[in-house]
Computed example of a mutant assay.
Amino acid sequence: MLDNLLILIVSGLFSGFLAGLLGIGGGTVLVPLLVTLGYIPVQAVATSSLAIVITSLSGSLQNWRMGYLDLQRVILLGSPALITAQFGVYISNLLPDYMLLTSLGILLIINVFLGNLRQRLATRPTSTSTKTAKIFPIIARLGTGGTAGFLAGLFGIGGGVIIVPLQILFLEETLKIAIQTSLGVIVMTTVSATIGHASQGNVLFPIGLILGAGGLVGSRISTSLLPKLPNRVVQFCFCGLLAILAVYTFWQAWQSYSRT
């Protein structure tokens, strides 16, 4: 029991550290770790959602105090996510364990390419508007927020790695505004996902609270470290970690499939 508690504390610290350092939502790390500890995938997804609520809420409150959080943007993007998160929860309860893990592995691989896309978009000259943003603003916001919500419910991730490039591409937001807004949206998506999973009895509340508390500490440490690291080093660590986690998640999926 004590060993598991220590592992959970370290896991929370590690996921928070990576979230602050690489911009990776804690769920990409926590879900595989919880499955390794013996929890079924849907419990890992649900409990990860609770942990992310804590860390994203802390970051959003800090942005709000500093005047960097536009609540109108957050509400417009987060509102559709409240609904689509429930669809993700529903599907996660229907999928066999190996299919849920395989899908998460595929998402991690996609995130590698999206992370590279985000880096390129960050250096792109920004304009005040685009044809897409002018003509289809409601569709763009519904699609962006809805995607984040669905992924939060299905995989127990915040969706920041995906929603940030979508905001830049379709809503013409700067990288900084996109990151700050996405963190607020993640609060809404993960709260919705946690409520949905809790109604199904999937959330392990003591474990989620421990992981979330550890994530708070870890993210504060990495946030102070990040400015000192070269961008190339950060990008290499980002892609390398996601690739390793994807391979490991595929292996867990195969193990789960072999037991069926």
Rank of each mutant, 00 (worst) to 15 (best):
A198V: 01
Q200N: 15
I210R: 11
I186E: 09
T189R: 10
T189Y: 07
T190N: 15
L204T: 00
I186R: 08
I195P: 04
T189F: 13
F205Q: 10
L183T: 14
G212E: 03
A193Q: 08
S192Q: 06
I207M: 15
I186P: 10
Q200D: 02
I210K: 11
L209S: 01
L211F: 01
T190C: 13
T190Y: 09
G201H: 02
Q200M: 11
G212S: 02
P206Y: 13
S192T: 00
Q200Y: 13
L204R: 14
T190V: 05
I195M: 12
V187N: 08
V191W: 15
G184E: 04
G201F: 01
I195R: 10
G201K: 10
A213M: 15
G212W: 09
V187W: 07
H197W: 03
S192P: 00
N202M: 07
S192G: 04
T190F: 09
G208Q: 10
T194F: 13
I210H: 12
I195E: 06
V191R: 10
T189M: 11
V185R: 11
G184K: 05
S192K: 03
N202Y: 02
M188D: 06
I195L: 14
V203P: 02
L209N: 01
A198C: 06
S199E: 10
F205D: 05
L183D: 03
G201W: 03
H197T: 01
L211Q: 05
L211Y: 06
S199D: 07
I186M: 14
T189K: 08
P206M: 13
P206K: 14
G212C: 06
F205W: 14
I207F: 10
I210P: 09
I207P: 00
A198H: 04
